[in-house]
Design a binder for these strands. Structure first.
Lengths: 199, 199
DNA sequence: GTCTATACCGAGATAGAC
DNA sequence: GTCTATCTCGGTATAGAC
């Protein structure tokens, strides 16, 4: 006799499956049928619980960013440059552990759409602003490379995360040499804080 | 009375439209109907001329890489480091001018598939090998930053190209500040060749 | 809340007249 | 080579019994 699974568990299972599928195949490529099947549910339950495929996608993205915040946020009174450095390190580690976030972002980023607009306005813009502010403070502190906040953001999302987002391609190309996230973060910090060239 | 369009023109028009669509929506998201329509043709002509959607996609990728080679290849007897630097510069400029190539690569890179395998074996592996060899020579020459060829490749594809591949997102986030490719290439060269820190 | 059945649509591919 | 008509399949969403 099978116990009825609590609703919250089903929602989590659907979100887990959707996260994987959206990250692997993109919004259009993913199928709600196969997401439901992977979660041990039936396809109409997705519409029942999330109303539409698009809202399911938003729920997945919300959950990913909230996991990112948990992983990165640090309440400390350290100096801006120290907060920046530690935040970068955690971002790289999160991107390696949970590549789905950057996959989904990159999959949407190539074309204007309502989904992309939502992603930028709700999630990216505030984080971009916070990161920029922190970098400005770092510069004011007299540390960090001679780069604008925009360039730092670009380096962070490109160099820091792309390798893990594109892991299937990278491992096909390089063999399973699987770069250690810590080493990768060190490399990024070496570029952003060249003065501390020790290591 | 409408003259019949030469076959080659139709093939080019179909490839143009397919390039845009595949780069914007990914393989699964793109529709052969809309590609044909954009090229002023009918959907069955795609199957007639290219046999299948997958082979159309391959033809698009072949054409893009061949444009890249035209843009980057330099037969010169300059030193490896000079060839490397100039090649990087041209790669960045090509990526800005023709973002479709890196879009298509990134869209496929997040999941193992027969398309990704074909892309890696036919196009990426030889270019990765050539770039690595050139970087090794650069290092032997006593120039270049202390990075492995793999790291250089990663920096190149990530920092050099992603910004342009993700242009719709970037301009949404930063306004139409549209970074100049030359400046961007300078920044990349500054990281790879730190000794020449003049500029 | 769950599950079956199904409506409805758009996809890629193919047949066959021209 | 082109174009219309159509086959078949898989997609999302919905209706309605349980």
């Amino acid at each position: 006799m099978q116990r009825r699974r609590p609703t919250d568990d089903l929602l989590e299972a659907l979100l887990d499956a959707a996260e994987t599928e959206f990250a692997a195949r993109g919004f259009e490529g993913a199928s709600t049928r196969s997401i439901a099947h992977q979660a041990g549910a039936h396809q109409p339950q997705i519409n029942y619980h999330f109303t539409s495929k698009e809202l399911l996608w938003q729920a997945v993205v919300d959950r990913l960013f909230s996991a990112l915040d948990d992983a990165v946020d640090l309440s400390t009174d350290a100096s801006p440059s120290a907060v920046m450095a530690e935040g970068l390190r955690r971002f790289v580690e999160f991107s390696a552990r949970r590549p789905e976030l950057n996959r989904i972002i990159n999959l949407e980023a190539t074309r204007d759409s309502s989904r992309l607009r939502w992603l930028v306005e709700v999630h990216l813009r505030p984080r971009f602003a916070a990161t920029s502010g922190l970098w400005e403070q770092t510069l004011a502190e007299g540390r960090g490379a001679d780069m604008s906040a925009t360039e730092v953001w670009g380096l962070l999302t490109a160099f820091g995360a792309l390798r893990f987002a594109n892991a299937p391609m990278v491992s096909m190309l390089e063999g399973s040499s699987s770069l250690d996230p810590r080493t990768h973060a060190d490399r990024l910090l070496g570029i952003l804080f060249p003065e501390e060239a020790t290591r």
